[in-house]
């Protein structure tokens, strides 16, 4: 049962993340070098948004399923499936390496720091919200 929930929630998380990727790709620039025009340089906003949201979800997953009197397989589905599928580590590291390859060292460092600080904060907030 847990495996089914992980699969269903994992697909939902992946589709939500892809939707966020697509939305930010459409509403921001893919510019990689500074130049004339108002366009700002690309920055991995979509990954930050899904990682912070997913950290909050994993934080509340255990408290939420307990309050709703759902079995532990639902906590696994929410934590491993939804939060795990929504968040991504590989896009985070790859985007950081990409920023370094473009000699944007400040942006790369900021990408690491902001994901960590907001992600850990969101997880703690989720736990505090529904202990």
């Amino acid at each position: 049962m847990a495996a089914v929930l992980v699969g269903v929630f994992g697909v939902a998380g992946a589709l939500l993340r892809f939707a966020a990727d697509s939305w930010f790709a459409h509403h921001s620039t893919r510019r990689t070098v500074p130049g004339p025009g108002k366009d700002k340089l690309h920055w991995p906003w979509a990954t930050l948004v899904v990682n912070v949201a997913g950290c909050f979800i994993i934080g509340i997953s255990y408290g939420l399923t307990q309050r709703l009197a759902l079995g532990p397989e639902w906590a696994t589905g929410l934590a491993t499936g939804l939060a795990g599928g929504l968040t991504t580590f590989s896009s985070w590291t790859t985007a950081t390496v990409r920023l370094v390859s473009e000699a944007r060292f400040g942006s790369a460092a900021l990408n690491i720091a902001v994901n960590l600080v907001l992600g850990l904060g969101a997880a703690a907030a989720g736990i505090a919200f529904l202990p």
Binding site: G13, A14, F18, N51, G59, A79, G84, T88, G119
Partner: peptide, 23 residues
């Protein structure tokens, strides 16, 4: 590209589990 990148590898790796375990 979408299926392998955001699909397979994006879902295989996880950030939330790292944050939760650290917490």
């Amino acid at each position: 590209r979408a299926g392998l990148g955001p699909g397979l590898l994006g879902s295989f790796t996880t950030f939330s589990a790292v944050a939760f375990a650290v917490d």
